[in-house]
Design a protein around this nucleic acid. Sequence first.
RNA 1: GCGCCCAUAGCUCAGCAUGGAUAGAGUGUCGGACUUCUAAUCCGAUGGUCAAGGGAUCGAAGCCCUUUGGGCGCGCCA
Length: 627
Amino acid sequence: MTFQSILDEVQNNLNRILSEMNISDVSFSVEPAKPGFGDVSSNIAFLLAKQLKKSPKDIAELFSEHYNKSVNTLVTKSEAHPSGYLNFFANWEKLSQLILSESNLDTFGFVELGNKSTIVVEHTSVNPNKALHIGHIRNIIIGDTISRILRKADYRVNVLNYIDDSGLQVADILLGFTHLGFSQEPPDGKKFDHYCGDDVYVKTTQKYEEDSSLEEIRKSILKDLEDESSDIAKLADIVTRKVLTNQLKTCWNLSVTYDCLNFESQIIRSGLWSKIFEKLKDMKLVEFENDGKNAGCWVIRGDGKEEDKVIVRSNGVATYVAKDIPYAAWKLGLVEDPFYYEKYTTSQSGAHELWQTTLNPNNSKENFTGQKVITVIDSRQARLQKIVTDLMGKFKSAPDAYVHLGYESVTLSSDTAKTLGLETDGKQAQMSGRKGLYVSADSVYELLRERVIAETTKRRPEIDSSEIETIAHNVSVGTLRYEMIKQDLDKIITFDLTKSLSLEGDTAPYIQYTFARASRILEKSGRTPSIDVDYSLLVEKSELDLVKTIGLFGIHVRDAANNLSPKVVAKYCHDLAVSFNSFYEKNKVLGLDDEKLEDTRLCLVNSFKMTLENALDLLGIDTPSRM
RNA sequence: GCGCCCAUAGCUCAGCAUGGAUAGAGUGUCGGACUUCUAAUCCGAUGGUCAAGGGAUCGAAGCCCUUUGGGCGCGCCA
């Protein structure tokens, strides 16, 4: 509740005043005030201006008078601002006690939004034929952060990663292995996913232009992939799983975890598509085209001006979107589950168990479906995802059951493109796995790590090298993760190898640094912080601002979960850090010759530290106590 | 051609969902603060016809319409 408590109190009192005045149906706002306008503000006077035929200023004054006569516990006074706003001032002694003691609870920041309903978040879903690049990382971090936020908002979250192990891109590297003589062993210890992506995939696709006969081979490989017993399918299984293991290492290293891996090859072999197809026909959601340009195909009718979408070709083969339909229905639990589940061979970090689908009935049955589904895919797929969303809305009779969470892509800055050998004339460049134009996630992490090691060694020569390694890891992961979610999903991220890897300003290290400062104060105090302190001693503006910011945690978690907006939490963490730095600059905590004041401030510092850790955890960012 | 998205300080972005007070950060540039709990920090200065035009409103960066500029998408490819 925390800061929400005072908002509720104001809301209730205003409602009571309204009913005394016989006014109803006014949906006024009660919000944390802007700096310099008290602690809580309401726009109620603006909304009543017309009805009462008075100026907002007069109405605000009227309300202010009434309000100051009502019973208050957390508000000391209300005040009419000439602009028409009604502002309220908090009883900080009580509010500080409320906020700081609640911030010590494990449940702090938890909001009851999902009512323990299950929700599926699917993200990553990268073809297992290459290493992850910085563009994939945006998808992964958005998905992982959303999952963490939803858990904090009382949802049971099932995180899925869809493994497209039977598509064209896999066929391409298989062709490289079987027909172009690429060894299945990567050279000199190169990671297998990098080898497949940098060498086999890029060079194989180059060859298509030189040798058109390869196109036929490619098609036959693609066809063989569907037959489980073929040599190609067996090879594909070995290769894609090896790439997958390497991709997962990259994800785990970034503190990203999953609940279940779903393999496309198994969805195909399970026969789920034909069941869904029958259902689509029964529900008249697909139609057979007798003539016109799509003669002989099954299509989904376009919405308004949109073109019809072919789902099954005239040769009977399903198209790309069609493959997404049975999977989407499976995720929503709308079809009988054809899969069994076994634990994944390598366990991921933490206590989080990772499962994978299998068609082998000697395994257990589990449930990874959800009442709602969020699929994280970049917005270039918006059109196709809209088809799936519409279909699922009709299947489930709930239009918002399936949500496509789209985001803009990551492009390379002109300078960074140049380092990869592409001249763009000052413009940013789209990444391309096929052309080998990308910056790998592993290399970015490594670059960051080296810089943080150098920086930390320079600043803190007394820290031993193993702790430096840990700090460097946490700061590098934090920097990368924060960079991927600090802006809105609809903004393109132009990645630059120099500018995007800064450790100063609005970055994770800035925030992490405040945690280290707070830790140091607590460590030096040699005391155990208590919440049994004199809260009336917190009177400085920078102290109360920090208390207030701490108290706003839950409100931001709710906002982020409601709007599926990770940047809301990123912004909050930054706000917390700014508040703390301001407090730190203006107030000493130790050596005051005033034990009571020291205890009170230690309590505040400890609350800040716990809340920041709590909030950063939602971003998957760790908190070093020294850096 | 049709559809979706973006446009706010030199640069990168908040604020827009739910219209209301003084449009905020970071970065850059210039200047200041480490014998004092960690300077990955802090303080000050600089910097804005909120792309343009129109509309509805007592009131618009925000809502509606048009235009311009940029990005992306529109296959019996995946």
